[in-house]
Design a protein around this nucleic acid. Structure first.
Lengths: 173, 173
DNA sequence: TCGAAGTTTCAGTTTTTACTGAAAGTGCGA
DNA sequence: TCGCACTTTCAGTAAAAACTGAAACTTCGA
C-alpha cells in the first residue's frame, strides 16, 4: 500500500506522460504537451531547471518549448521576488485555455486553408465546361464551410464562458 | 496567356499541393491529404495507378494511404463495370465530410483524453491536502470540459446539416 | 490448376522533426 | 567594466515518420 503522497505523484506522472502521448496525436510535440501538463498541475511556478529535472530533458529543449508555450499564450513568465531567474506559470482557467487554443489553431490552420480555397475559387470562377464548374463549386462549398467555422471560432474565442456555454449546452444537450 | 484547361489544371494542382501542406499542420500526413484533395476534385473515380501517376508516389504509399482514407470514411471503393481493378471515389458532400472528420477525431483524440482525465481524477478523489485537492480539481475541470466537447461532437456528427447549421449560425453570427 | 491482373505487406531507406549540449549572448550588481 | 547568473541559439545527432519497391499474396478466368 502506497502513501497518499506517492499516489498523488503517480497520478500526476501519469497525467503528464499521457498528455504527452495525446499531444502527439494532436500535432503538438510531446515535450510541449508534457511541459504544459506539468505546469498545469504545479501548485507553484517552475523554472527552466525545475522543468529540465522533472522531465529529464535538455536545457535547449526546455527553453524552446517553454518559449513556444508562452507564444501560444498557455504559459506566462513570472518573476519571483528577489530571484533573478525566470519562472513559468500556466493559465489554469479551463475556459481561457480553450479560447486560447481555438484562437491559435484558427490562426495557424483555418485561416491559411481559407486563403487557398478562396484563391482556387477565384482563379476558376470564369471558366466554362462542366469539369471547371464542378471544381469551382467544390472550392466554393469548402470555402463557405471553412469561413463559417472561422467565424464561429472567432466568436467563441472572444466570448465569456457564461454567455456561450449555457447556450451551446442547451442547443446540443 | 494560358488556355482555360491549363488554368484549371494549375488551380487543381495548387489545391492538391496546398492541401497537402495544410494536412501536415493538421497532423495528417501529406500524401493522405493530397490523395483526398485529388479525389475530391476528380470528376471520375481513380485507380491506385492513376493516383500513383498523378502524385508521383510509390505503389505502397498509394495503397496504404488510400486504404486509410477508406477507413476514415472519406473515400469508398467503387467497381467500374467490367473492370477488375479497384477504383476510389471521394465523398463530396461537405457536411458529410465534416461529420466524418468530427466523428473520427473524437474517437481517436477526445475519447482517450477523457479516459486519462477520469482515471487521474478517480485515483485522487479521496486524497487530502491542498495539493492533492488542487490536482483533483484540475482533472475534474478538464474532464467535464472534454466530456462536454465529446457530447457536442457526437451530436454534431449524427445530425442533419439542415437542423444544426441554421441554429449554430443563429447562435454565433 | 495455372497464370495473369491486381492488391497488400514489409524490410530497408529517405526525409522530417525533435533534441542535445556547448558556445555565444544578455544584463545586472559590485 | 568585470564576472557571475542566467537565457538563447544552433550545429550536430538521435528518433520518429513517411516512403519505396520488390516479393508475397489473392482472385479469377480459361
Amino acid at each position: 500500500m502506497s502513501s497518499p503522497a506517492q499516489t498523488l505523484a503517480d497520478a500526476r506522472l501519469e497525467f503528464v506522460t499521457q498528455w504527452g502521448v495525446l499531444g502527439s496525436a494532436w500535432g503538438i510535440n510531446r515535450t510541449m504537451a508534457m511541459l504544459h501538463a506539468l505546469l498545469l498541475t504545479s501548485p507553484i511556478p517552475l523554472s527552466t531547471d525545475d522543468a529540465m529535472e522533472a522531465l529529464q530533458i535538455s536545457r535547449g529543449n526546455a527553453n524552446t518549448n517553454l518559449r513556444d508555450l508562452v507564444a501560444w499564450g498557455l504559459l506566462r513568465k513570472v518573476v519571483q521576488p528577489g530571484q533573478r531567474r525566470d519562472y513559468f506559470e500556466a493559465e489554469k482557467d479551463v475556459w481561457k485555455i480553450f479560447c486560447t487554443v481555438v484562437r491559435e489553431r484558427k490562426r495557424r490552420e483555418v485561416d491559411p486553408a481559407l486563403e487557398v480555397l478562396q484563391r482556387c475559387a477565384e482563379q476558376t470562377a470564369a471558366l466554362r465546361g462542366s469539369e471547371a464548374r464542378q471544381f469551382h463549386g467544390m472550392m466554393k462549398a469548402l470555402g463557405e464551410f471553412v469561413e463559417l467555422a472561422a467565424r464561429i471560432m472567432d466568436r467563441v474565442a472572444a466570448s465569456e464562458r457564461s454567455k456561450i456555454v449555457p447556450a451551446v449546452v442547451k442547443l446540443f444537450k
